[in-house]
Simulated scan of single mutants.
Amino acid sequence: MIGQDETCVDVYRLVITQPGWGIAEIAAELGAAESTVRGCLDKLAELSMLYPAKDATDVAPISPEVGLAAYIHRRETEIHSQQLELAAVRAATAELTAIYASQRARHGNAGLEQLEGVNEVRARLSELARHATTEILAFMPGGAQSPEALEASRPLDEQSLSAGVALRTIYLDSVRNDRATTEYARWLSELGGEIRTTPSLPLRMLIADRNVALLPVSPEDTRAGAVILRAPGVVTALLALFEMVWESAAPLHGKQQPAADEPTQQEIELLRLLQKGHTDEVAARKLGLSLRTARRMMSTISQRLGARSRFETGVLAERAGWL
């Protein structure tokens, strides 16, 4: 690649500044073998940075802005495709890790405590938060939080941060459209807390001090109760899951706008969920969106791709490298 080959950059620079020089003169100036210079000229020609030469002295440069445009576009497309592939691997890893941890909890474990009912779960959540001394990590799926829930969390979060406990929370991207949640996030950030968002989350989860985790018995029904896990192997797996999702998540107040013709991560996740066979209702719930919003988003994607059906949307999305 031209940006990584200093010799070829030097050759191109001499072609510009010393018109009429041939391979022998360029090689002598650079102290390089003529075969090396000839190889660089071939590479520059392949990148459309030189006009075709009739002989060794007939070398004329093309503006790199023009010559490299196609190469840059091709590389950008390849990188974007790799990023999408990596995001899919991360999502699959997160989902499998959550399933693994949940199944281990169901079958019993020396470091497991079963919690029955919503009230008991809330009481233990508060207890874990109050007794944390270093760090609290949390997944918060389900979309926008109610003003009542946020106000109930405020005293506990303030107490934790004032005691020097680090708070890192991941919400769904859909909360970006909710004023109450974004205002709460701004208040929390001012106190030192960190909030990021991601298109979807595998389950609700809290990890305190990197040695105890609380997660629901059923990711689909948090009212079914929860389990507290202390087994080091399971907690370590959940920590790895959190850090993986955190790395790919975006700061709540950061810029998320992709290029005009590129899909958002939320749109990609919607396509992926529907491709897996989820209904519109299930996909909307996993993304923290209303059914109407999810369907409107799907309609927008179809229009952007010029598709006339859901099936055609999936086919065109794959061809575009979105899936």
Results as ranks from 00 to 15, higher is better:
W246S: 09
R204K: 03
S218D: 12
V212T: 15
L273D: 00
A320V: 11
S63R: 10
P155I: 03
A149G: 14
S146D: 09
V212F: 04
A60D: 08
P61A: 08
Y71F: 12
A129R: 08
P199Q: 05
R296Q: 14
P258D: 11
S63M: 10
M298C: 04
G277F: 09
Q266N: 01
I268S: 04
R295D: 03
V234N: 12
A94D: 06
T36K: 13
I268K: 05
A110Q: 15
V245G: 01
A123C: 09
T134N: 09
P202L: 03
Q159P: 00
V66H: 10
A87H: 00
A250V: 07
M1V: 09
A149D: 12
A213W: 02
E78P: 07
Y12W: 10
R38M: 07
A132M: 12
E6G: 13
Y71W: 14
P263C: 05
R90W: 05
D10M: 13
L238A: 09
L305K: 01
E78R: 11
S81E: 13
L316K: 11
D157G: 01
V9N: 09
E29K: 12
R13Y: 00
L161A: 05
S200I: 10
A24Q: 09
D261F: 03
T36E: 12
T17G: 04
Y71T: 15
T182L: 02
L241C: 14
T279R: 03
T17K: 05
R168Q: 15
E220R: 06
P141L: 02
K255Y: 12
R230C: 07
R176D: 09
I301F: 01
G117E: 09
A33T: 02
A24L: 06
L44Q: 04
A231L: 07
R292D: 13
N177W: 01
R296I: 07
G192E: 08
K276A: 15
A92D: 07
W21P: 04
V15T: 11
S153A: 08
R304L: 11
Q275N: 12
T169R: 15
Y12Q: 03
L305F: 04
A231C: 13
S248N: 07
T198E: 10
E247D: 13
R176N: 05
A123R: 14
L86Q: 05
W21F: 08
L84D: 04
S290P: 06
G117L: 08
Y171P: 00
L323G: 12
A180N: 00
E243N: 13
R38N: 08
L188C: 04
A56G: 05
V66L: 14
M49V: 06
W187V: 00
L252W: 02
R186I: 07
A28T: 10
A163G: 07
R308S: 14
S153Q: 01
R179W: 01
P141W: 00
A45N: 08
E151V: 00
E220Q: 09
A166F: 10
D42N: 10
I23K: 03
L68E: 15
A224G: 07
A284H: 01
P199D: 06
H131G: 10
A69W: 08
T293C: 05
L125Y: 09
A87N: 04
K286D: 06
C40D: 02
L188H: 04
L273Q: 01
I99Y: 05
A294R: 00
G3I: 10
L215T: 01
R285M: 10
E135N: 12
R179E: 07
K54F: 14
